[in-house]
């Protein structure tokens, strides 16, 4: 997992491995740090191998936070577990994930 700043002030955070109850406690500080003072944030989810309710809550809370702070947040690169869970929970519309860019 790494956070890098691209030239156009968009921060980039890539999450990988499991994003679940087992990692949620560690992932939250990463998300908070990435959001801190950001103008635009891009979170790459394409390498997330495991996704559960805890992960989902984190992404939703991150989204809500970004909205409140006027941060332009984009989720990109949905991995299969994420797509399945969003579909299952009826949240696909609420948590749009864009195609991963090359």
């Amino acid at each position: 997992m790494s956070a890098t700043s691209l030239a156009d002030d968009t921060r980039h955070l890539a999450l990988d491995g499991p994003l679940s109850i087992y990692t949620a406690a560690d992932t939250k500080p990463q998300l908070t740090a990435a959001l801190q003072g950001a103008i635009a944030l891009q979170i790459d989810l394409s390498q997330v191998e495991e996704f559960d309710c805890a992960g989902l809550q984190l992404l939703l809370a991150t989204q809500a936070h970004a909205q409140r702070m006027d941060i332009c947040l984009r989720f990109i690169g949905a991995s299969a577990p994420i797509v399945e869970l969003l579909h299952l929970s009826g949240l696909a519309g609420q948590l749009p994930i864009e195609e991963a860019c090359a």
């Binding site: 908070t32 809370a61 009826g90």
Partner: peptide, 25 residues
């Protein structure tokens, strides 16, 4: 047939305990 997620109880990110469950359905 249909699922409505209930996010009403989801706290703001800073107050969120990542291991607690806030979701309803």
């Amino acid at each position: 047939l249909h699922v409505e997620p209930v996010l009403d109880h989801l706290p703001p990110l800073e107050a969120l305990d990542p291991e607690s469950c806030y979701l309803g359905l």
